[in-house]
Design a binder for these strands. Structure first.
Lengths: 286, 286
DNA sequence: GTCATAAATTGTCCTAGACAAATTTTTAAT
DNA sequence: ATTAAAAATTTGTCTAGGACAATTTATGAC
C-alpha cells in the first residue's frame, strides 16, 4: 500500500507519516524498486490503533514509546471505562443481515421515539461498535455497514416527519475537509425533535459559500460540526470568519471535539454534548 | 487560503499545485510572513476552471498556455455542445427553497417514474447545474444544495420501495479516496428499478474490507464507481486485486470515467453508460 | 498509412530542513 | 508550597529542489 493510499485510508497526512518514521522509527515501510514506501497490513492496523489513541488524547511521543502490546492494552484501558454494556445490542453487531439491521433499528426507533432512540440506543450502539473494533471482534466493513444504515434511518426522519409549524429554520453543514458527518446528523435529529426545521447538507461546503446559502435560504441559524480530525486552530479561525460574514441575527452553533477546547466568541454557541440541545434550542429561539 | 485548504477544496494534490507553480507559473500565490503560500479567491476560481477543463480531457500544458479569458471560452465551448436545453428545469435552478425543491423533485419522480425520472429529468438537471456553474449563474452552494436533495430522494427510493422478490443482491460501494458517490447512486437506482436488491454503502471502504463484506452479506455481485478524480491506473490495479479476492461467482461491475479507458478483465463488467444497465442486468442475472 | 522508437509531458514520490503553535518542564517569586 | 513566567520540548505542516515512471505526442522507417 502506497503512502497516499494509507494516508487516505486512516486519515493521517503524508507529511506526518514521513516525519513519524524519521522521529519515532515507526512505521518503517518496505521500499519498492524506486524507493517508494510500501506499508504492510500489520503496519496499517498498528497505525489505526495509534490514531485512535491519539484522538483519545494521548500524544505521539508517549504512544510510540510503547510496544505494540502495550498500545493495545492502553487502548482497551482508555476506552473500557466508558462502555455501558447493553446486551440488547449484541445481535446487531454480530449476525444480522442489512435488511434485518434495518428492521431492528426501525423497531427500536418506533419503540423509543426519536430522542430516546438516539440517547439510549444509537449512542450506545456506536460506542459498542467502537469497542468492538478495538477488541477486533467487529470488522471495519461491518462497522461501516451498521453506521450507514443508522445514518440512512436518521436522515429519513428529518424528511418524513414534517416538523411542527416552527418558523425557525436551521442549516446543518460541514466545511470542506471535514468528512465526519454522523455527529452533525445526530444533532440535527435532536433539533428536529425540538420542532426546528432542519436542512442537512451532506456535501462539504467551502467557507466562502456558507454565507450565500444562509441568505438565500433565509435560515435562522447555521450549525457546524468539527470532529477531532479537524485542526482545532483552523476551526477557531473558520468560526470567527464565518461569524463575521454572517448577518448578526443568524445564530451560529458549533459542535464536535475540535471546538471543545475553550473556543469562545460573541454570538457563538458551542454545543459540547448532545444533551444540551434542548437547552440551546430554548435559549436561542424563545 | 492555505495550500492544504485549497487542495481539499478543489481536489488537486498539494504536490501538483506546487509543481504547477514551478512549471507553468500559475497559480503564484502571495506568501505569508513565514513564506507559506496564500491563495486568493480569484486564483481559487481560476483553478476550479482549470480542474474542470482537465476533467474534460484537456491537458495542463495547453490549459496553462491560455489566458484566463481563453480558458473561460474553451470551457463554455467544450461543455456547450452537450447541453440539452430544458426549460422545465429553470425554476429549480433559480429561486426555489429547499422545501420547494424537494416538492418539485418528488412531483417529477411521481410523474415520470424512477427510470424516466433519472434519464429525462435528473441527468439533464445535473448537466444544467454544471453548465450554470460554468456560466457563473449558479453558485457552488446552490449546486450542492440541489444535488443533495436529489441524492436524498434517490436514496429514499432504494429503501422504501421494496424490490420484487428477486434473489439477486448487489452491493454498491466506493473505495477509500473516491469521494464522488452520485454516479453510483444513479446506477443503484436503475439496478433497483430492474428488480435487483441494492445495498448502497455511503461510506468509503478499504479494498481489503470489500471481500469480507461480500461474503458476510452473501451478495451476488459488487458494483464500484471510479470518478475522473480516481487515478485510472489505480482503478485497474484495485479491480484486478478485488477480482482475485472475490469468489468467482460474485459478479464484479465497475463504472465511472476512470474505467472508460479500456479496462478489460475476465469476469468484470464495465458499465460505460447508465443506459446499459438493463442489458447488464439481463446478461448477468438470467 | 502503420507501426515502432524517441522525446516531451505530467503527477507523485523522495530527502532534508525550518518553524510556529501547543504542551510540558523548569525556574523564579510570592 | 503554590502560582506565574520563562525556557525547552514536542508536534504537524510547510518549504525547496530533485528524481522518475507512466502517459501522451512527435518523429522516422517501412
Amino acid at each position: 500500500m502506497t503512502i497516499q493510499q494509507l494516508s487516505n485510508e486512516i486519515g493521517i497526512g503524508i507529511d506526518t507519516l514521513r516525519i513519524w518514521e524519521r522521529r519515532y522509527g515507526f512505521p518503517i515501510p518496505t521500499r519498492s524498486a524506486r524507493g517508494h514506501r510500501s506499508y504492510s497490513d500489520d503496519q496499517i492496523h498498528e497505525l489505526r490503533i495509534v490514531k485512535k489513541l491519539q484522538s483519545l488524547g494521548h500524544r505521539p511521543g508517549k504512544i510510540f514509546a510503547l510496544s505494540s502490546d502495550e498500545r493495545q492494552k492502553l487502548l482497551t484501558a482508555t476506552t473500557e471505562q466508558e462502555l455501558t454494556p447493553n446486551t440488547a445490542l449484541q445481535p446487531l453487531t454480530k449476525e444480522l443481515s442489512p435488511v434485518q439491521i434495518n428492521a431492528e433499528l426501525r423497531e427500536q426507533l418506533q419503540r423509543l421515539g426519536l430522542v430516546s432512540f438516539i440517547h439510549q440506543y444509537a449512542l450506545p450502539l456506536l460506542q459498542t461498535l467502537d469497542q468492538g473494533w478495538t477488541e477486533g471482534s467487529i470488522s471495519i466493513a461491518r462497522e461501516h455497514l451498521i453506521t450507514d444504515r443508522l445514518e440512512e434511518l436518521l436522515r429519513e426522519q428529518l424528511v418524513t416527519e414534517q416538523p411542527t409549524k416552527s418558523q425557525k429554520k436551521l442549516l446543518f453543514l460541514t466545511l470542506s475537509g471535514e468528512r465526519h458527518k454522523l455527529g452533525l446528523l445526530l444533532a440535527a435529529a435532536l433539533f428536529h425533535a425540538e420542532g426546528i426545521n432542519c436542512i442537512l447538507l451532506n456535501q462539504e461546503l467551502p467557507l466562502s459559500e456558507v454565507q450565500k446559502l444562509t441568505s438565500e435560504l433565509q435560515v435562522d441559524g447555521v450549525a457546524l460540526s468539527f470532529s477531532c480530525h479537524y485542526p482545532a486552530r483552523q476551526a477557531k479561525i473558520d468560526l470567527a470568519s464565518l461569524r463575521n460574514q454572517l448577518d448578526p441575527q443568524v445564530k451560529l452553533i458549533a459542535g464536535g471535539q475540535a471546538v471543545q477546547g475553550g473556543v469562545t466568541m460573541q454570538n457563538l454557541t458551542i454545543c459540547t454534548a448532545l444533551k444540551q440541545i434542548p437547552g440551546i434550542c430554548s435559549k436561542l429561539f424563545t
